[in-house]
Design a binder for these strands. Sequence first.
DNA 1: ACGGGCGTCTGACATTTGTCATGTGCGGTG
DNA 2: CACCGCACATGACAAATGTCAGACGCCCGT
Lengths: 203, 203
Amino acid sequence: MSGVRLLLADDEHLIRGALAALLALEDDLVVVAEAATGPEALAMARAHRPDVAVLDLEMPGADGVKVATSLRAELPECRVLIVTSHGRPGHLKRALEAGVRGFVPKTVSAQRLAEIIRTVHAGNRYVDPELAADAISAGDSPLTPREAEVLELAADGAPVAEIAERAALSQGTVRNYLSSAVSKLGAENRHAAVRLARLRGWV
Amino acid sequence: MSGVRLLLADDEHLIRGALAALLALEDDLVVVAEAATGPEALAMARAHRPDVAVLDLEMPGADGVKVATSLRAELPECRVLIVTSHGRPGHLKRALEAGVRGFVPKTVSAQRLAEIIRTVHAGNRYVDPELAADAISAGDSPLTPREAEVLELAADGAPVAEIAERAALSQGTVRNYLSSAVSKLGAENRHAAVRLARLRGWV
DNA sequence: ACGGGCGTCTGACATTTGTCATGTGCGGTG
DNA sequence: CACCGCACATGACAAATGTCAGACGCCCGT
């Protein structure tokens, strides 16, 4: 056999290149494509049909989870492994729901990553234990869909009037959602709530 | 001669390791130390006295610029090169003020980085042209020291009362600074102002 | 040395937000 | 069917925030 065929997607050349070089050292792994953005990753995957896609979570265009979702639909054979710098609990959950087979922080070593790639390729799942623990202890988002939506619109500091308009809701309703989101998150005000929700990957 | 002695500091094992491997391929470069945090980088530098320190801008403990400042004082011989994912204009300015000799985004290739390391080692400076252009077009911060200070305290969504206490100012004064910062930045409110200032590296 | 500009600071007032009580309708579950 | 939780909405009051006019001191240039 000719080895596991890999797609590497990360917006940072330096890292992608370095990673490609390191993984190429393992003689059962071969990098067949690289991409710097979400859409590019998708295009590359279609063109090269890799066995495993190693995706950065934060990329311009479409984040790793979105790419994974599309990939799941188009190339069900292709296993997806997500690599990330900032391990937000909510992201892990979303990723698993999108059919991602592996989720690891960038703090692992290259050897370890190679092993994990093999694990994932063999059809098993791998989730970093620490991230998993965080995700479990953080639990699910307590926010209702609407609360999350409104909170997201509030993320850039927009006034209530604007949020109301963009969400097609009355201002009173917006304040209500904001208020309940704030109390559910135990925040001081909506801006702190946005920060918290971001931190936990709930928005 | 035995090559340029390097210190590599980045909190992401994967990247640091990969980078070390790639740079080691260049036969005039040798990685003599690695670190995952700011303080660790400092300790490593003291112990190994590298010729060039390649520092990630965002690290736990102390950021690249702080480390560079300390390094400047303790090991003036050691050139500092900063590598970053998110190129905020203000950071570049702060870095140069701290005596940093090079500033590049992680989007460069490893070959390019190796060249830049040589450039810096030879005593020259190197700043990524795009980041430099951004920095120039963004210009200096229009904020007075107090405005910046107060804005920073407002960053996590704290109420005015708390900011006032932490800054030892009256609430009215705090509102004033916030207000003038907001208008200088052309923002809708202080939270949007915080976002903008962050974006431009002014806080 | 003097006046102007700027950074600093304050309290009062207008506006925006947050909170609360309350009500309607809808959809799923026991 | 009855119930419960959620989405959606209103109005009123309390609290936080934004805005304004003004005061003081410092430094810089004339």
